[in-house]
């Protein structure tokens, strides 16, 4: 089990991305909503083997529950249809609406869970490295990496600024208008500070030859293993079988 767990996480990022794409395609190839919903448990099992079951389930529920519920409410009550299943006053649930909602949500659940899985089992560092190998300019990969570092940093800074402003007498709790007024004193020092820091960052990067037009070496390496080949071939064969089965049907 331990061996298997590391195997899934050890796959090359592009292979992992192929798994995601294959799951999405399969959800659209197989008719009906049964299989598309089944993508979520499939991803859960895969996440379990990669050792991130809890994170995956938490994120999937947070991201999907609200939108699925709302789609069901909107579609089942307001989709034009005649076959009434249940009614209360002027509201009525129609069969056509429920079917449409099932169709729509199943596809959304399938695609979304496949992508959540990808980002749970792939380290951003690995992803960025493989993108660089494909030939993406280092400016693009720098933006991706530094964004992901900057967000938690700035979130922390926000709390510090809020505390600082509180000690200076800015009210952050109370009526709506009071809380509204606190927004700008919190945001503007944060933005002005971080925007000003870009100037220093330019100097730092340029002193390390960031825009120099030469091939750079990387201290971080990522190897493709024989399993990558195996998984890729397996996925393509499975998809081909699905398509043939669908056409023959």
């Amino acid at each position: 089990m331990n061996n298997e767990r590391s195997m899934l996480s050890r796959l090359y990022p592009t292979t992992k991305f192929m798994i995601t794409i294959a799951l999405c395609l399969a959800a659209f190839i197989v008719p009906g909503y049964g299989f598309s919903y089944a993508v979520l448990p499939i991803c859960m099992v895969l996440a379990y083997f990669a050792g991130s079951f809890k994170e995956f389930s938490n994120l999937a529920i947070k991201a999907l529950l609200m939108i699925v519920v709302f789609i069901f409410i909107l579609q089942s009550f307001f989709y034009p249809g005649h076959d009434i299943l249940w009614s209360w006053g002027i509201f009525s649930i129609k069969r056509e609406g429920v079917e449409f909602a099932l169709f729509l949500t199943s596809k959304i659940v399938a695609v979304a869970s496949a992508f959540i899985l990808f980002f749970r089992i792939t380290k951003v560092k690995d992803l960025v490295h493989s993108l660089e190998q494909i030939g993406l300019p280092s400016k693009v990969t720098y933006v991706i990496l530094s964004t992901l570092q900057l967000i938690p940093e700035m979130k922390k800074l926000t709390l510090v600024i809020m505390d600082a402003q509180k000690t200076r007498g800015v009210e952050t709790e109370g009526k709506l208008l009071v809380r509204m007024k606190a927004f700008l004193p919190t945001l503007s020092p944060l933005i002005l500070g971080s925007v000003a820091s870009t100037e220093e960052r330019v100097l730092t990067l340029e002193s390390r030859a960031f825009s120099a037009n030469v091939k750079k070496s990387s201290i971080y390496t990522l190897e493709k293993t024989k399993y990558d080949r195996l998984v890729q071939i397996l996925l393509i064969v499975l998809l081909a079988i699905l398509i043939v089965w669908r056409v023959a049907l």
Partner: peptide, 9 residues
């Protein structure tokens, strides 16, 4: 370098 800052904002 403004892009990451913008995203973070």
């Amino acid at each position: 370098l403004l892009i990451p800052i913008g995203i973070a904002i």
